[in-house]
Amino acid sequence: MSHSETFELPDYLKPLLKKAKVLEWLTLLYLLSTIVLMYLLMGSSQAMKTAWLEDALSTLPAISFLIATRIYNKRPNINFPYGYHRVFSIAFLTGAVALFGMGCFLAVDSTISLISQEHPTIGSMMFMGKQIWMGWLMIAALFYSSIPSMILGYKKLPIAKKLHNKILYTDAETQKADYMTAFAAMLGILGVGLGYWWMDAAAALFISLSVIKDGYINLKDAIQDLMDRRPVHVDNSKPDELVEIIEELINSWDWVVKAKVRFREHGQVYFGEVYIVLAPDVDPSQHIEKGIKEIKELHWKINDITFMPVHNLPKNIG
């Protein structure tokens, strides 16, 4: 009675996924260039080190998105009868763990340099025949690491919402807010230039706290998805009203006395069960397939529905 679509996305969304992939490739290349540039200029600034590690980490969502998009659409087979949709949830969890762990490490590291009164030494170099303080170059590198990143984030955000793709959404959100990190790091370096050594470590601490915050939110979300929480919207984690709409639709059918549904997210799409009490003398085989078709027409996200005729609706399904 269950039937799983092999291809998740409707035709009108396929070009959007393609665009998302192109954007993620661009993101990856751009991030690699900032990572190299910032590594070369990092020196002994704690804020630069933190901003650098944050940039290095932000390749993870892009990489996991690009890997996951190669796998998620595979046909279900004997070993994976539910298909590969959840690869997105796993990729999301991996990224979240990395972000959270690294945030904690950076917070401890910055706190240590604050307590041990680590004074960052920032020298100068010859650039086109002039002596130039490395701090200015670091600030320039931070500009380079933030402005294009923001633009990419803004471009990815609406696509992520339409595709109901959490990795892409998180990636876009973090990139959009990346200017905060860069700005904090710039202030830290400028502070060092003005003789306030602690501003560097303080900026680093601020950045690492924002990394921890992002990591924690993502981690919570990723775990809840894998715990089969009911579907939620990607942008605000509010319950998706689609579930209620489905239940109402089923209850409106004349061959159904009453019905109860439960759904969960499998990556970009929803899987779920429908418990129905049939009207007397109804042969379910005639109606159920038509019913599934009707439900799927509600939204492309509804990917897999199983119908279960019962005498009494189960009470322990939420």
Binding site: P120, T121, S124, Q131, V192, G193, W197
Partner: peptide
């Protein structure tokens, strides 16, 4: 070698070195 973080001293020394 110079004291850590004394960036003005460093700047002046380096301009001499350059």
């Amino acid at each position: 070698l110079i004291p850590k973080g004394e960036n003005k001293l460093l700047h002046n020394l380096e301009s001499f070195i350059f």
